[in-house]
Simulated scan of single mutants.
Amino acid sequence: MVDLRKKLRSGMIAVTPAGSYLVLTDCETANYGSQDFCIVGPDGFMIGSNYDENLSTIRGICSIKALYKSTVNGLTYEMKYKDKDLIWTKDPKNLKELIISRRFSK
C-alpha cells in the first residue's frame, strides 16, 4: 500500500468534511515541532502526525477526502477549486475520478 502522506505537495487543496485547507509541507510549528505536512485554513491548522497513510484521522471530520491542484490568484486563501483540477479522491464517483485517483496512488 502507498503512503499517501508522502505524496502531498505544498499548494494542494485538501478537502475534508470540515472544509477546504491549503497543504504545506515541511512545517515547523510552535507547539507540535517539525511536521512533514500541515493543512492550513482560515481558522487554524491540523498537523500531519494526526494522519495515517490513507489521509484519515481518528476524528473523521478532519480526514482528507480529496486533493485538488490550486491556481494561485486573489481567491487562493478561499481554497476554491474546480472539478477539472482533481488530483485524488477517496470516494471516486465515476471512471474518470477513479483513473485520476489511481494514478496519484501509484
Rank of each mutant, 00 (worst) to 15 (best):
V15G: 04
M1Y: 07
L55A: 01
L95W: 09
L95P: 00
P17E: 01
R9P: 09
P17R: 01
S49G: 09
D91L: 10
I13K: 00
E78R: 13
E28F: 10
D52V: 05
E97K: 06
G60Q: 07
Q35Y: 09
N54M: 11
T71M: 12
G74N: 09
N73I: 04
L75H: 14
C62S: 14
L75S: 15
P42K: 15
I64P: 04
E78M: 14
A30S: 14
A18H: 05
Q35I: 07
K7E: 03
D52P: 01
P92L: 05
G11T: 01
L4E: 03
K65C: 08
K90W: 10
T89C: 11
K80I: 13
A30I: 13
G44H: 06
W88V: 00
N54A: 10
V40I: 13
L24T: 08
S63N: 05
W88Y: 13
A30R: 14
F37Y: 02
D26G: 10
K65W: 06
K6W: 03
C38K: 01
S10W: 00
V2Q: 13
K80M: 14
L98V: 00
Y32Q: 09
V72I: 15
L24D: 12
K80C: 12
A18F: 04
L98N: 06
D43H: 12
T71K: 15
V72W: 11
L8P: 00
T76W: 15
G48M: 07
E53P: 02
M46V: 13
C62F: 14
S56Q: 14
G60R: 06
M79E: 14
T25Q: 06
